[in-house]
Each structure stands twice: as structure tokens, then as C-alpha cells.
């Protein structure tokens, strides 16, 4: 029973971590390797606002989310726009930005386990004999809520539909007056926002450490590759596959196998089904 409950929680955690990454790639074909850094940055900004400026928690959260979204958008506008379309350069540049942010934070004093955010709700509850604290339940609830919100956004708002069009056929979208650079900024801002949301939901469970940035990036990449790059359904399904695999190995082999599972999932996917569970690597090239 605890495998089931913690499997769901772990899967929701992974889905939260990966959502922003898959969103940006799905819409703009931009591999945002600064994803993990933005995650840690959100936590640290929130911590600063909370502890140095003494702002109320809600306000600190809102400000941190806004700031990280701006950082993400600015990252595209100032740097990535210059190398648009060269995917290797995009990976290198975004990873470099991520490194700069993460190691900059470490240099600035983000070390040790003393940086923590308070849980939204204290306390725990028994589900079928397993004790689960409220924050972990919130992870599942808010994770589902975020997926729902993003789904609504992409399918029913003007900007969301424009992003969807841009993702499917850039040239067709251009003819309709949708601007590719503006859409890329929007998607980066949105992806960073989801990374920040994930951070603020998940970080109260542990402490804010630089290593989390690398961990989140690996998990996001693993989920996206297993699910099929840019596919939402794939990403969610893959978080459940990897999430449960991790909990099972933790229960029967040991906790230090968690990252091994993720990497193994990447390797197996690339060998057996390179486009991922739901990936469409242009199977149907233009039919005339």
C-alpha cells in the first residue's frame, strides 16, 4: 500500500519537475537546459524574500514566480534568440546559463541544508494505514491542477492556441500573424513559471540545495525522452512509469538506485523506441 501511495506522490513530483521542460520543447523546440537552475532560483528567491525582506509567504511566492518567469523570458530575448535554430548551440548556451545561475548561487552562499521553505500545511494524515503529510498530498493535488490549467491554457486561450499552432507548423503560423520570437519568449516565460511553481511546491519537502538543480534537469530530461519529446500525455505517463520504478527499486534494492533508474530509462528508451512512448518524429513527412 505504501508503494502505491508513495508511487503516486513520486510520479506527481516527477511530472511537476518535467512539465515546464516539455512545455518549452513542445512549443518552441527549445531544449531549455537551464530548467533545473530556474527551479533552484525560484526557491532561493522565495527564501530571500521570506527571510531577508520578511514578506508574507503568499506574496513571496507570487513575486518569486513572477521574477523567474521574467528571467526565463529574458534568457530567450537576450541570449537564445541569437542562436535560434541551432539545437546543439541552444543546448550548450542554455546549459551554460543554468551552470552560471547554479554555481553563482553556490558562490553567493547557497550551501548546506539550512535553506528551507515552510510547508503550506503542517501535519499529516493516515491513508489506509500509511502516514502521509499534507504537503505531499498537495504535491499530487497541485500537480493535477497545474496540468489541468496548462491544458486549458493551451486549448482555449488565444495565446495558448497560437503556441499550439507555432509548435505544429511554424511557417503556417507565421502567415497568420503569429510572431515566432514573441511566442518563444512566451513559452520560455511559461516554462520557467512552471519550473518555479514546481519548485515552490516541492522544496518545502526538503531544503534548497544547488544539487537539486542538476537532479531536476536529469529527471525532466528522462521523463521527456521516455515520454517522447514535446508530448504531454507521454510526459505524464512517463512520470508514472519512472516514478513507480523508482519507488519499487527503493523498496526492494535501496534508495541510491533512484537516479540509476532514470538514466536506465533513458538508455532503454533510446535503444528500443527512440521517439519515446508518444513521440512523433515526423513519421508522416509531407504528403502531396
Amino acid at each position: 500500500m505504501d508503494i502505491l501511495i508513495y508511487g503516486v506522490i513520486n510520479s506527481a513530483t516527477l511530472a511537476l519537475m518535467a512539465l515546464g521542460f516539455t512545455l518549452v520543447y513542445g512549443v518552441s523546440r527549445l531544449p531549455n537546459f537551464a530548467h533545473g537552475a530556474l527551479y533552484v532560483l525560484a526557491g532561493y528567491i522565495c527564501w530571500l524574500l521570506l527571510n531577508r525582506l520578511g514578506l508574507p509567504y503568499i506574496l513571496a511566492i507570487a513575486l518569486a514566480l513572477g521574477l523567474v518567469a521574467v528571467v526565463g523570458g529574458a534568457m530567450y530575448q537576450l541570449i537564445l534568440v541569437r542562436i535560434r535554430g541551432m539545437s546543439i548551440s541552444e543546448i550548450i548556451a542554455s546549459y551554460a546559463i543554468g551552470l552560471a545561475i547554479l554555481e553563482g548561487l553556490r558562490w553567493g552562499g547557497l550551501k548546506g541544508g539550512t535553506f528551507t521553505l515552510p510547508a503550506f500545511l503542517e501535519g499529516s494524515v493516515d491513508i489506509a494505514g500509511v502516514s502521509v503529510d499534507f504537503q505531499r498530498i498537495l504535491v499530487v493535488v497541485l500537480g493535477a491542477l497545474l496540468v489541468g490549467l496548462l491544458y486549458f491554457f493551451v486549448n482555449h486561450t488565444r495565446l495558448g492556441l497560437a503556441l499550439k499552432g507555432m509548435a505544429q507548423d511554424e511557417r503556417a503560423a507565421l502567415t497568420l500573424g503569429i510572431d515566432s520570437d514573441r511566442m518563444a519568449v512566451a513559452s520560455m516565460a511559461l516554462g520557467s513559471l512552471s519550473a518555479a511553481i514546481a519548485a515552490l511546491i516541492l522544496l518545502p519537502l526538503g531544503s534548497i540545495v544547488v544539487e537539486a538543480g542538476y537532479h531536476v534537469l536529469i529527471m525532466a530530461v528522462a521523463v521527456c525522452i521516455v515520454g517522447g519529446l514535446g508530448s504531454w500525455t507521454g510526459a505524464i505517463l512517463a512520470s508514472f512509469v519512472i516514478g513507480f520504478a523508482q519507488i519499487l527499486t527503493t523498496a526492494y534494492l535501496g534508495a541510491h538506485f533512484q537516479v540509476v533508474v532514470a538514466i536506465l530509462a533513458i538508455i532503454l528508451t533510446l535503444i528500443l523506441r527512440p521517439s519515446g512512448l508518444f513521440g512523433k518524429q515526423k513519421e508522416l513527412e509531407e504528403r502531396v
Binding site: 486549448n155 488565444r158 492556441l161 497560437a162 499550439k164 499552432g165 505544429q168 507548423d169 511557417r171 503556417a172 503560423a173 502567415t175 497568420l176 500573424g177 503569429i178 508522416l284 509531407e286 502531396v288
Partner: peptide
């Protein structure tokens, strides 16, 4: 555009909605 370039994964209605940007 040439060869129409319909958004293949969107429904007819959604294609039109995207067009209404």
C-alpha cells in the same frame, strides 16, 4: 501557403481558431 500547411494535430475548428489570432 503552398501545400496548405494545415495544422495536422488540430481539429478543423481549432485550425480556424488559431487562424483567428
Amino acid at each position: 501557403p503552398e501545400r496548405r500547411r494545415i495544422f495536422p494535430e488540430s481539429s478543423v475548428l481549432e485550425n480556424l481558431k488559431i487562424g483567428g489570432y
